[in-house]
Amino acid sequence: MNNEVVILITDDDEGHSLLIEKNLRRAGLVNTMLRFADGEDVLNFLLRTGPAPHRDSHVAYLLLLDIRMPRVDGVEVLRQIKADHDLKKMPVIMITTTDDPREIENCHDLGCNSYIAKPIDYDRFVETIAKLGLFLMVVQVPMVNGDNFQ
Protein backbone atom coordinates (compact mmCIF):
# COMPACT_ATOMS: atom_id res chain seq x y z
CA MET A 1 0.00 0.00 0.00
CA ASN A 2 1.14 3.42 -0.81
CA ASN A 3 2.52 5.18 2.21
CA GLU A 4 0.38 8.18 1.35
CA VAL A 5 -2.81 6.36 2.31
CA VAL A 6 -4.24 7.77 5.52
CA ILE A 7 -5.80 5.31 7.95
CA LEU A 8 -8.82 6.57 9.84
CA ILE A 9 -9.47 4.77 13.14
CA THR A 10 -12.95 5.36 14.49
CA ASP A 11 -13.69 3.98 17.95
CA ASP A 12 -15.51 5.52 20.86
CA ASP A 13 -13.11 3.81 23.22
CA GLU A 14 -9.90 5.83 23.20
CA GLY A 15 -7.97 2.87 24.66
CA HIS A 16 -9.02 0.68 21.72
CA SER A 17 -7.93 3.27 19.17
CA LEU A 18 -4.59 3.58 20.88
CA LEU A 19 -4.04 -0.18 20.99
CA ILE A 20 -4.99 -0.55 17.31
CA GLU A 21 -2.64 2.21 16.25
CA LYS A 22 0.18 0.90 18.43
CA ASN A 23 -0.06 -2.57 16.96
CA LEU A 24 -0.41 -1.36 13.36
CA ARG A 25 2.78 0.64 13.87
CA ARG A 26 4.41 -2.39 15.40
CA ALA A 27 3.38 -4.35 12.26
CA GLY A 28 5.39 -1.88 10.23
CA LEU A 29 2.84 0.63 8.95
CA VAL A 30 4.22 4.13 8.75
CA ASN A 31 1.09 5.75 7.36
CA THR A 32 -0.61 8.73 8.87
CA MET A 33 -3.36 7.56 11.22
CA LEU A 34 -6.21 9.75 12.39
CA ARG A 35 -8.42 8.82 15.32
CA PHE A 36 -12.09 9.72 15.70
CA ALA A 37 -14.18 9.25 18.86
CA ASP A 38 -17.53 8.64 17.19
CA GLY A 39 -19.41 8.30 13.92
CA GLU A 40 -20.46 11.90 13.74
CA ASP A 41 -16.83 13.10 13.89
CA VAL A 42 -15.67 10.81 11.12
CA LEU A 43 -18.67 11.68 8.93
CA ASN A 44 -17.96 15.39 9.42
CA PHE A 45 -14.41 14.70 8.31
CA LEU A 46 -15.28 12.60 5.29
CA LEU A 47 -18.34 14.49 4.09
CA ARG A 48 -16.71 17.80 4.82
CA THR A 49 -19.59 18.99 6.95
CA GLY A 50 -19.49 20.58 10.38
CA PRO A 51 -16.29 21.81 11.98
CA ALA A 52 -12.82 21.03 10.53
CA PRO A 53 -10.67 19.02 10.01
CA HIS A 54 -11.97 17.82 6.63
CA ARG A 55 -10.57 15.30 4.22
CA ASP A 56 -8.30 16.29 1.36
CA SER A 57 -9.41 15.57 -2.23
CA HIS A 58 -6.08 14.14 -3.34
CA VAL A 59 -5.45 11.75 -0.53
CA ALA A 60 -6.44 8.08 -0.40
CA TYR A 61 -8.14 6.96 2.83
CA LEU A 62 -8.92 3.68 4.50
CA LEU A 63 -11.43 3.50 7.32
CA LEU A 64 -11.33 1.21 10.36
CA LEU A 65 -14.75 1.46 11.93
CA ASP A 66 -16.20 0.36 15.26
CA ILE A 67 -19.93 -0.42 15.29
CA ARG A 68 -21.32 0.53 18.66
CA MET A 69 -20.71 4.20 19.23
CA PRO A 70 -22.83 6.93 20.78
CA ARG A 71 -24.98 9.15 18.53
CA VAL A 72 -24.06 7.93 15.05
CA ASP A 73 -23.06 4.28 15.13
CA GLY A 74 -20.76 2.44 12.74
CA VAL A 75 -23.54 0.90 10.70
CA GLU A 76 -24.98 4.33 9.95
CA VAL A 77 -21.50 5.66 9.03
CA LEU A 78 -21.03 2.72 6.67
CA ARG A 79 -24.45 3.30 5.10
CA GLN A 80 -23.74 6.99 4.47
CA ILE A 81 -20.29 6.30 3.02
CA LYS A 82 -21.61 3.70 0.61
CA ALA A 83 -24.42 6.04 -0.44
CA ASP A 84 -21.96 8.84 -1.23
CA HIS A 85 -20.77 9.04 -4.83
CA ASP A 86 -17.21 10.06 -3.98
CA LEU A 87 -16.71 7.91 -0.91
CA LYS A 88 -18.22 4.64 -1.93
CA LYS A 89 -14.96 3.26 -3.31
CA MET A 90 -13.11 3.91 -0.04
CA PRO A 91 -12.29 0.61 1.71
CA VAL A 92 -14.08 0.21 5.04
CA ILE A 93 -13.04 -2.45 7.55
CA MET A 94 -15.39 -3.02 10.47
CA ILE A 95 -13.45 -3.68 13.66
CA THR A 96 -15.61 -4.32 16.70
CA THR A 97 -16.03 -6.31 19.88
CA THR A 98 -19.26 -7.94 18.71
CA ASP A 99 -19.15 -11.17 16.76
CA ASP A 100 -22.93 -11.35 16.39
CA PRO A 101 -23.44 -13.02 13.00
CA ARG A 102 -26.49 -10.84 12.20
CA GLU A 103 -24.39 -7.75 12.71
CA ILE A 104 -21.66 -9.16 10.43
CA GLU A 105 -24.17 -10.00 7.71
CA ASN A 106 -25.78 -6.58 7.98
CA CYS A 107 -22.39 -4.86 7.50
CA HIS A 108 -21.53 -7.07 4.51
CA ASP A 109 -24.92 -6.29 2.98
CA LEU A 110 -24.19 -2.60 3.32
CA GLY A 111 -20.89 -3.11 1.51
CA CYS A 112 -18.12 -3.21 4.11
CA ASN A 113 -14.88 -4.63 2.72
CA SER A 114 -13.93 -6.70 5.72
CA TYR A 115 -15.08 -7.46 9.23
CA ILE A 116 -12.76 -8.05 12.18
CA ALA A 117 -13.84 -8.96 15.72
CA LYS A 118 -11.62 -7.58 18.47
CA PRO A 119 -10.51 -10.53 20.57
CA ILE A 120 -10.42 -9.93 24.31
CA ASP A 121 -7.29 -12.04 24.55
CA TYR A 122 -4.57 -9.51 23.88
CA ASP A 123 -2.15 -11.93 22.19
CA ARG A 124 -4.80 -12.72 19.65
CA PHE A 125 -5.68 -9.04 19.42
CA VAL A 126 -2.05 -8.26 18.62
CA GLU A 127 -1.98 -11.06 16.09
CA THR A 128 -5.20 -9.90 14.42
CA ILE A 129 -4.04 -6.32 14.12
CA ALA A 130 -0.63 -7.49 12.81
CA LYS A 131 -2.42 -9.47 10.11
CA LEU A 132 -4.57 -6.43 9.35
CA GLY A 133 -1.33 -4.42 9.06
CA LEU A 134 0.11 -6.91 6.58
CA PHE A 135 -3.13 -6.86 4.64
CA LEU A 136 -3.14 -3.07 4.57
CA MET A 137 0.39 -3.05 3.24
CA VAL A 138 -0.58 -4.93 0.11
CA VAL A 139 -4.05 -3.54 -0.50
CA GLN A 140 -4.65 -1.04 -3.35
CA VAL A 141 -6.58 1.98 -2.27
CA PRO A 142 -8.35 4.22 -4.79
CA MET A 143 -8.51 7.95 -4.48
CA VAL A 144 -11.82 8.84 -2.97
CA ASN A 145 -12.76 11.39 -5.60
CA GLY A 146 -10.97 10.29 -8.74
CA ASP A 147 -10.99 7.50 -11.28
CA ASN A 148 -7.23 6.83 -11.23
CA PHE A 149 -5.82 4.02 -9.20
CA GLN A 150 -2.46 4.51 -7.63
Binding site: D13, H16, L19, R68, T97, T98, D100, I120, Y122
Partner: peptide, 14 residues
Protein backbone atom coordinates in the same frame (compact mmCIF):
# COMPACT_ATOMS: atom_id res chain seq x y z
CA UNK B 1 -21.47 -8.72 24.81
CA UNK B 2 -20.18 -5.53 23.29
CA UNK B 3 -20.16 -3.10 26.17
CA UNK B 4 -18.72 -5.51 28.68
CA UNK B 5 -16.14 -6.78 26.25
CA UNK B 6 -14.88 -3.33 25.40
CA UNK B 7 -13.32 -2.58 28.81
CA UNK B 8 -11.94 -6.12 28.91
CA UNK B 9 -10.03 -5.50 25.70
CA UNK B 10 -8.52 -2.43 27.31
CA UNK B 11 -7.67 -4.11 30.60
CA UNK B 12 -6.03 -7.06 28.96
CA UNK B 13 -4.41 -4.93 26.26
CA UNK B 14 -2.83 -2.30 28.44
Amino acid sequence: SHDLRSPLVNIEGF
